[in-house]
Design a protein around this nucleic acid. Structure first.
Lengths: 168, 168
DNA sequence: GATAGTAACTTGCATTTTGATAGTTACCGG
DNA sequence: CCGGTAACTATCAAAATGCAAGTTACTATC
């Protein structure tokens, strides 16, 4: 993608996308959350070309989402296990899953999220940890952080829409 | 990307990625949540090539996240406003933002999420709407939905890891 | 009325990334 | 020695992206 501008702003969302901002990476993570750890397993599950998979796994490893672990010395065999950083990506995955489910006709939904004990549907909801209230755009503003520079301040300055909701 | 296999499984997460599965789309949405609606505004903010922006906006529009609205008849000028589907993507964006913030050194964080009234930090947390408890991998299983076929059943069958957590 | 500016694009072409297929390394088991 | 498995690498064609310039349809200014 060869970005520059977005990165310089140090926007956390843009930064995230540098780690996981292509669909294969996301799908690899999806499968990792389902317990897959091995090259072949990912390859078979995703139908991705091995060279691409190699590249992605390498990238996700250098970005700290996976740990490449030797699980067999002779012959040398490696597996890819999620690190804490990788596991912490879970909410993003679930939010994406939920959004997809929301806008897929019910008869096309092949998977849903359930409670492991009762089997009941689970529906993810994003709230504010402090207030416990829904994390709505109306109640959320972007504020400058420690690394904010002029560009960021200017950017934040004209974000009225965020305050006013979206019924423009 | 030219997928086939993943789509056929009708996994909602994979489906989502067909709409927004490239970094530009995500960044466009990020800016849209900040109130941007116009071609030029997106272009200047992102530094993306105009042909790419055209393609992405067109795609996001056909996927139903944006509505292309004529805001000036003569000369014809269009703006891109988020639809309900687009606005519903907000939690995904926030989860991504939060994950990025979590793993960025504090001195590199240029933006943070705050309460518009108090200015205090807001921290998104994913919970289950029904139980109100944290949406953890340990308490979440994937279940077959209406469109589940043999492949899906087989896939779900060996997802023990999801039950057991990740401390393999 | 000619020139400059704005907004939303399109076109052409070089560069980059991806995808498909085949091949490699290092074993094991019969 | 032969086939099988696992994790790759190599090669090359195809597709996507990035850049710069051009286009259309105006409005506003000199």
């Amino acid at each position: 993608m060869q970005r520059a501008c977005s990165t310089e702003l140090n926007c956390p969302a843009a930064r995230s996308l540098e780690s996981v901002g292509d669909s294969w990476s996301m799908l690899i993570l999806r499968d990792a959350f389902q317990g897959l750890t091995r090259f072949d397993a990912f390859q078979k599950s995703l139908g991705v070309a091995p060279n691409i998979l190699t590249r992605r796994l390498k990238h996700l490893t250098t970005e700290g989402l996976f740990e490449r672990r030797l699980y067999c010395e002779r012959p040398p065999r490696y597996e890819y296990v999620l690190t804490q950083k990788g596991r912490d990506f879970f909410p993003v995955m679930m939010a994406l899953f939920a959004w997809g489910s929301q806008y897929l006709p019910p008869e096309e939904i092949a998977m849903r999220l359930g409670n492991p004990e009762t089997g009941e549907d689970r529906e993810p909801l994003l709230i504010d940890r402090v207030t416990g209230r829904a994390f709505s755009p109306e109640e959320t503003v972007i504020k400058p952080g420690p690394a904010a520079d002029e560009v960021v301040y200017e950017r934040i300055a004209h974000m009225r829409a965020w305050f006013l909701g979206f019924d423009a």
